[in-house]
């Protein structure tokens, strides 16, 4: 089974890497937005130093980490789960069900392969540019690097599970674009992409930091920046693993309901 998933993930990686022009255009966008946000954050932190417990350098670093994670965790949605939504709408999902492979594993493997590509191309590229243009902070220890590396696949899995659930609504609604819109707006806000979650006031901050979307950007970034270290970092990883586990179980449950109750479209 591991061999199969690896093989599927490799193909997904290769599939996304075939569109070089799209990748370059996307990297350019990340860089432009990154630079603009850096200027905004510099201004913001000069007015209010140590906002959210970050200094300017950490805030700037956060910008580039956010840009790196947008495509890696697909804050805006999309990826293989989009294919799934389309295949449910057209009925092609029937062919996925004919294969002796669990549907969730099949799509999750594709999404991890895709995320690996997006991390390399859309993540590392802009971050290096950010490091050239601005003064950014790097992880302070091997442990921080390792914890950051573990936080990434967890973030992708949590994001995948949410997108899988959104796509599954197509089994009932046929068109999942409504739920998808709600999902990306929620994700943009609660992942810390729009505003770092550490800037949320009072108790709302504690709440948003325990929600699944916190694992997308805020937790990996805090591990990178050393804001979360030691047990605090482990706690962040456990949160990610727990959300991934719970949400994937929900996916399995929903899929079972869907295939038992719902008509697969088309003749």
């Amino acid at each position: 089974m591991a061999g199969l998933y690896l093989s599927v993930a490799t193909r997904a990686f290769r599939r996304y890497s075939t569109y070089t022009a799209a990748t370059l255009a996307g990297m350019f966008t990340n860089c432009v937005f990154g630079i603009i946000l850096c200027f905004v954050y510099q201004e913001l932190w000069s007015l209010k130093p140590h906002a959210g417990g970050y200094d300017v350098k950490e805030a700037i670093t956060y910008v580039w980490l956010g840009q790196a994670m947008i495509m890696t965790v697909l804050v805006w949605g999309g990826g293989p789960t989009n294919d799934l939504a389309n295949r449910i709408r057209t009925g092609d999902v029937a062919l996925d069900l004919y294969r002796p492979v669990p549907l969730i594993g099949w799509y999750a493997a594709q999404d991890l392969g895709r995320a690996a590509y997006h991390l390399l191309a859309r993540g590392i590229g802009p971050t290096l540019l950010g490091a050239l243009l601005f003064d950014i902070r790097w992880p302070g220890s091997l442990g921080a690097w390792l914890a950051f590396a573990v936080s990434l696949p967890l973030a992708v899995l949590v994001s995948f599970a949410i997108r899988f659930l959104v796509a599954s609504t197509a089994f009932w609604l046929l068109d999942s674009s409504g739920p998808a819109t709600v999902a990306w707006i929620t994700a943009a806000f609660l992942s810390g992409l729009t505003v770092p979650l550490v800037l949320f006031p009072g108790w709302t901050r504690d709440v948003v930091l325990t929600l699944p979307w916190a694992t997308f950007i805020q937790i990996p970034a805090d591990i990178w920046l050393g804001q979360r270290s030691g047990w605090h970092a482990v706690e962040g990883l456990v949160l990610g693993a727990a959300w991934a586990g719970v949400l994937l179980l929900v996916c399995a449950f929903v899929l079972r309901r869907a295939t038992a109750k719902v008509v697969v479209q088309g003749g």
Partner: peptide, 28 residues
């Protein structure tokens, strides 16, 4: 079972045929 639908495809749209076949070997 083998299943073929005239109007649907099981192949990977963006990749060469060879890749789809290679994945099938792992699937089955």
């Amino acid at each position: 079972l083998g299943v073929v639908f005239g109007q649907r495809t099981t192949l990977w749209w963006d990749l060469p045929l060879r890749d789809s076949f290679a994945v099938l070997q792992k699937i089955y």
